[in-house]
């Protein structure tokens, strides 16, 4: 599987009622690579991730995870197949403690070994008894990622992880992503071009619900500029 595609999206169309928001999107995410999707607000990035994770029903098209067709599965079934989606709102269960948040993920994935989580995000150790409502944005993002890597994780979809976070925390997250990349396939939606350039092995550019460019070489990724290309 090292060379094959971990996740493939074929000709996906999504509509909200009458209005179409995703047009014939086809993307390929190679195993153990970091793919970054960029685009302006309303370009259809979040819609794409939600449709892959099963939270939206695509009008047509298919999603293939490591050779398995997962189109039309319920979100929890997609998760149990090893595809995790982390939404951009950075909200964890605020009435539950960090420990309880992790317990729920353990219960769902039947993986009670938290050593991996604490290795990537050591800071969570001291926060175990704090309720979600009292965590900072960065801590919540770490908790969400910690929950997501419990159990089998082939592909991790992360929507705008660095949005609204302080630069030092962004650096911590980038480091964590780099480590994670050697264990699973990462798909990030990212508005921060510096982060995108630093992490991306390949890059998709979306505009008005369509995939308009695919850059798979370093030079192309480095040359991307916000004003000009987005």
């Amino acid at each position: 599987m090292a060379t094959g595609a971990a996740l493939q999206v074929n000709n996906m169309n999504v509509s909200y009622g009458e209005s179409r928001v995703l047009f014939d999107a086809s993307l390929t995410f190679p195993a153990s690579a970091v793919s970054v999707i960029v685009g302006r607000n309303g370009a259809g990035k979040t819609t794409l991730l939600k449709a892959i994770a099963g939270f939206l029903k695509p009008g047509s098209g298919s999603v293939v995870l490591g050779g398995d067709e997962i189109t039309g599965l319920r979100p929890y079934q997609v998760v149990r197949k090893g595809l995790k989606y982390i939404p951009q709102d950075k909200e964890v269960f605020s009435d539950l403690t960090v420990r309880e948040n992790l317990e729920l993920a353990s219960y769902a994935m039947k993986d009670h070994d938290w050593s991996k989580v604490l290795r990537y995000f050591p800071k969570l150790q001291q926060l175990m008894h704090r309720k979600g409502a009292y965590l900072s944005g960065g801590e919540r993002q770490m908790l969400m990622m910690g929950r997501a890597i419990l159990g089998k994780t082939h592909v991790l979809l992360v929507d705008e992880p660095t949005e609204g976070l302080a630069p030092s925390i962004v650096q911590d997250l980038v480091a964590a992503f780099k480590q994670l990349a050697s264990h699973c396939t990462l798909v990030l939606v990212e508005q921060n071009l510096a982060v995108a350039r630093e992490l991306a092995d390949q890059l998709y550019l979306m505009k008005e619900g369509k995939v308009v460019a695919h850059l798979a070489d370093r030079a192309g990724i480095e040359s991307l500029a916000f004003e000009k290309d987005l």
């Binding site: 994770a53 939270f55 319920r74 979100p75 929890y76 998760v79 149990r80 995790k84 989606y85 939404p87 909200e91 964890v92 269960f93 729920l104 993920a105 219960y107 769902a108 994935m109 929950r147 159990g151």
Partner: peptide, 10 residues
């Protein structure tokens, strides 16, 4: 949705 997103059959 977030509960289901953890892999729980809601």
């Amino acid at each position: 949705d977030k509960t289901e997103g953890l892999g729980i059959d809601v």
